[in-house]
Design a protein around this nucleic acid. Structure first.
Lengths: 206, 206
DNA sequence: GGTCGGCCATGACGGATGTCATGGCCGACC
DNA sequence: GGTCGGCCATGACATCCGTCATGGCCGACC
């Protein structure tokens, strides 16, 4: 029999992390060798434990899972990444693939499929939800410029234009211009709607 | 040796549900006898399986976990409820206890504590995160009237006043009045900020 | 070198938003 | 029966917001 596949788990929710470890440890050919709760601890833990596949949640403190996948790609090219996330946002998938991730699963996937996904990723195959792939193609690439994303993110917590201007070191008129551009590009009619649409498409990461 | 505690799991994310089942089945005195992905299937499944403790996520389609706890309380008083949720919102805890839930855990609790929490709930004890309990007392009860919650919820997706008025069958001026009241009560300065604050405190459920 | 696009800014305009005063209707409570 | 508070509405006002035109600066690309 071959050696076990060495896994790293990264998820900020300890309960979910521990439960996934229990689930995966039931498979004789899988072995969870490291668990972390922050994205910026992934590379060091993967290196120390000799992980071959990393299961990465997107929403994590320190560094998001996609950034962690990029860091792994750069520093430990032998360790493949499988993104496991709550939200099947098109922009997440696009950026995950650009970051060199080998797979992308949403958390409402049946639990029985997780181990197989890990094995396929370890074997060098890609694992992507086909529906999400289609949706990602339909949505297209992120139309927002970096600054437009900045002001939308700053507007997300409901501050006034003056607040956003202070937070981004821009003039109020410039903030209004960026918001107007973002509203136009998203097809929205208010800044709040634009922020919601952008967030749903995964355009506000980082 | 005593008989196993019979558990029901309710979580809309299949992967998390299956992983929690794997984790809990590792304990010899616990047995997962039912799994559902919707809140409105909880009571029937619990009755059919003879569940003694129900692990309920708050965010679920059909009926939220707190509503499911209330339904269990009414129809199967012998089955205790343990709420397990991503968000430690004060309003969630308050409403969960009012609904007759026996416990309330957030998902960043260490996995090792989950089984003990189940045992305590089964034994008739309450299990509540003490920090969250303090925060709940500090925040106080929900100050928003039912209509104020309605318009805030309707405003959450970023529509204009006219949209909200159409959706709630109110006049535009009335909508503005309710929004203004909600802004005042939450200490916010825009409707978006008021909506964010209300959501963070768990005041917009249902 | 010219063109394009992102970035930053100003100013002006119309419309939307938040506030306030006011009033009526109803059920609950003393 | 009076009072209180939630609910619904109207109207007016000052402010904020979204849009547009315009301009300058810079790096990329042909």
């Amino acid at each position: 029999m071959n050696q076990s596949i060495r896994l790293l788990l990264a998820d900020d929710q300890a309960l979910v992390r521990g439960a996934l470890a229990a689930l995966l440890d039931l498979e004789h050919d899988l072995e969870v060798v490291a668990q972390v709760g922050r994205g910026d601890e992934v590379v060091a833990a993967a290196r120390a434990a000799g992980a071959q596949v990393a299961l990465l949640d997107v929403e994590m403190p320190g560094l998001d899972g996609i950034g962690a996948a990029a860091a792994l790609r750069a520093e430990l090219p032998g360790c493949r990444s499988l993104i496991v996330t709550t939200f099947g946002r098109p922009g997440y998938l696009r950026r995950a693939l650009e970051a060199g991730a080998s797979g992308f699963l949403v958390k409402d996937t049946p639990a029985e499929q997780l181990a197989d996904a890990v094995r396929r990723v370890h074997a060098g195959l890609r694992v992507v939800d086909p529906d999400l792939a289609v949706a990602t193609l339909a949505v297209g690439a992120n139309p927002l410029t970096a600054r437009e994303q900045d002001v939308l993110r700053a507007a997300a917590d409901g501050g006034t234009v003056a607040d956003i201007a202070r937070g981004t070191y821009l003039s109020e008129g410039t903030v209004r211009n960026y918001l107007s551009a973002a509203i136009g590009k998203t097809g929205a009619r208010t800044r709040a709607e634009a922020g919601r649409i952008a967030a749903e498409n995964g355009w506000l990461l980082r």
